[in-house]
């Protein structure tokens, strides 16, 4: 299920890198842990985001979780329809369920992201709710 060619954060965000653009979303593990999602707030286009810092929030009935930026840079595009359609997030978290496209400021940051195998280990160690 976890795409092999994506990069990950321990906090369950994924990033797909195309040149100097990172497409970002949250993993199916994160979606599952959240349960019924009720609200997604996306950042504004043009907002500056910093690696490992919160850029937006997702809420379920039982939790409100920050979504962290996997890379630093500027928000180029956001997936606005997703804020009205949480089904897609459950069905296709790694494709149609993307949230933000970030123009990468510093490609060196990419080396500290997790690979698919490393991320899989993170999910196995985390207690399931």
């Amino acid at each position: 299920m976890i795409p092999q060619d994506y990069k990950y954060l321990k906090s369950h965000e994924w990033a797909k890198i195309d040149g100097d653009v990172a497409t970002v979303g949250i993993t199916d593990f994160a979606v599952g842990q959240l349960g019924d999602i009720v609200f997604l707030e996306l950042p504004k286009v043009g907002a500056k985001v910093n690696k490992d810092s919160a850029m937006c929030v997702i809420e379920s009935v039982k939790a409100a979780v920050d979504i962290n930026a996997p890379v630093s840079g500027e928000v180029m595009e956001v997936n606005t329809p997703l804020t009205q359609d949480f089904e897609t997030l459950g069905k296709d978290p790694y494709g149609q369920g993307w949230m933000v496209k970030i123009k990468i400021r510093d490609a060196k940051e990419l080396s500290s992201l997790l690979g698919a195998a490393e991320y899989k280990k993170v999910t196995e160690e985390e207690p399931k709710h």
Binding site: V38, E59, S60, V61, K62, A63, A64, D66
Partner: peptide
């Protein structure tokens, strides 16, 4: 809207 509240979000 309880997810924003202290008993869930704590310091956030």
């Amino acid at each position: 809207l309880q997810a924003r509240e202290q008993h869930i979000r704590r310091e956030k």
